[in-house]
Design a protein around this nucleic acid. Sequence first.
RNA 1: GCCAAUGUGGCUCAGGGGUAGAGCAAUUCACUCGUAAUGAAUAGGUCGUGGGUUCGAUUCCCACCAUUGGCUCCA
Length: 589
Amino acid sequence: MKVLRNDQQVLEMDFESKEGKKAFWHTSAHVLAQAVKRLYPEAKCGIGPAIENGFYYDFDFGFPFSDEHLAKVEEMMKEIVKESLVLSVYDMSKEEAYEYMKERGESYKMELISEIPDDERITFYKQGDYAEFCAGPHIGNVSHIKAIKLLSVAGAYWRGSEKNPMLTRIYGISFPKASMLEEYLKQLEEAKARDHRKLGKELELFALMEEGPGLPFYFPKGLLMKNLLIDYWRKIHRREGYEEISTPMMLMRTLWEKSGHWDHYRENMYTTSVDDTDYAIKPMNCPGGMLVYKSKQHSYKEFPMRVGELGVVHRAEKSGTLHGLMRARCFTQDDAHIFMREDQVMSEIQGVMRLIDEFYGRFGFQYEIELSTRPENSIGSDEEWELAIASLKAAVEGVGKPYEINEGDGAFYGPKLDFHIRDSIGRTWQCGTIQLDFQLPQRFDLDYIGQDGEKHRPIMLHRVVFGSIDRFLGILIEHYGGKFPVWLSPVQVKILPVSDKYLEYGRELAREMRDLDVRVELDESDEKLGYKIRAARMEKVPYLIVVGEKEEKNRSVSVRSRDLPNDQQDLGEMEVEDFVSLIHEQEKE
RNA sequence: GCCAAUGUGGCUCAGGGGUAGAGCAAUUCACUCGUAAUGAAUAGGUCGUGGGUUCGAUUCCCACCAUUGGCUCCA
């Protein structure tokens, strides 16, 4: 496949290469615009780049754009591709380019051109009757685009700002082979099948109700899983020298004013009033943690002081942002604040990094680190910010992990290290974070008595490992596709009697295994074995045990495993004791 | 919050200006069963909510609520 560049050079590129894909999808976006302009000449074009998977193009149609319109546009694109149009590249002056767009009424393009330096030449890529200014590169001929699918229509603000008009964004994907499109669509289907909202319902883990948008209800199995994550969290944190506290769900407005949250996040806080006093339901745990710290005098000998809180927080997120457990209005943070001296900062940050590494490793997650620096709307002095950023940098570099800098993405009170996990289908999620905070200790006038007998200001950091336990559970559901490892499975074993003649033996087994801390369920339904197996498999239970005449007589179990190919799942008969130790062994993994 | 789409029994979905349909699940009965669905019967719905148009609305129109896909936002 030939690829055309600004400098007229033609390169040979493969679709499988990153650059090749980008050129291919970028050209597809141009074809999309060409199709739109053929069908709706009055439509105005915004921008249309290649993205990670496919491409999009923003348009101002001036009318509601529906799925029927989308289908027509897709058809037109296919026709354009059949015309085998060759792409050419040329340039013109800024004025000429501006005039060209003005003639065509492309006001958004005019705005973009007007921002380019006056003396710069502007490159245009043209295929057939359609030309647009673009930095390229593009594929040499539209006929390479053998398969096209327009995926969705969405609103998107012009240039990403809420203050600008909203354009209609069309998302699409294209490939050089029809089979590749089929494969891609199949992948999308598979991703849909592991959607945590779908599995949450099917596996009876949690639900969201109309009566509480964004406020999850946990069912027994879902809460069991959440508690298993918490048990694990507590075990590791205890080992790492963390103590745990709990602070009130709701505190007075004056506290939030003091912490700065009232100023910065009032519109996202739930508030109420009691006896003429304003209260806010906590959107964060920190201010409560500050009060706990202040409740007594501290000595440097207590440092580093690691104080955890599994705090339930509520944030009034905008309605359009809600997404199952991933973005909810109520969630549990695995928060902790570490108070320390300056000389302990480095080792404490690295300690949290090790902790995060251990946690994510347990779930088989790869992760990436980002360092977020000072945002626009922030508090504190330049010196404090610089010191804080330098400390985080030194700590990451000290452990030798690669990281990227995310300019201006810090919290309003301090910079942070963010940990993005990559799940089994390649998506990334921000979970863990380590945030240095020079603000709150000052605002709350925290102090400790140093070795010199004088009062000093402690350094504090906030950190979470899971982030939101609820969101982390959502990610786990999708990562495992509902097939949880034995230690996390709400039901580890399902007992299936061959007929109800063996129900009593099944009950005995269930009791025996429960006493040995195995999470077991018994299928008491009056169905055939095949049916029971099918039902249990749909519940994604890791082990099924079948009991009938033979097992009852031998006081044994016949085991079937979820995690092997279909024809190898029957593991045969074994002693109950051996089976239980198999489960316990796998719980450690 | 913004743009678009969707909302019908517990679940998945069909239908459509004239008394609401299927499959699965549930319940009951029969079968007592050996590794991915035994058969039969029964019950279950103000068609998201509120207005409007109409002789008549679940269906058409409007508003609201919720959900979905995005955008903005995410301490």
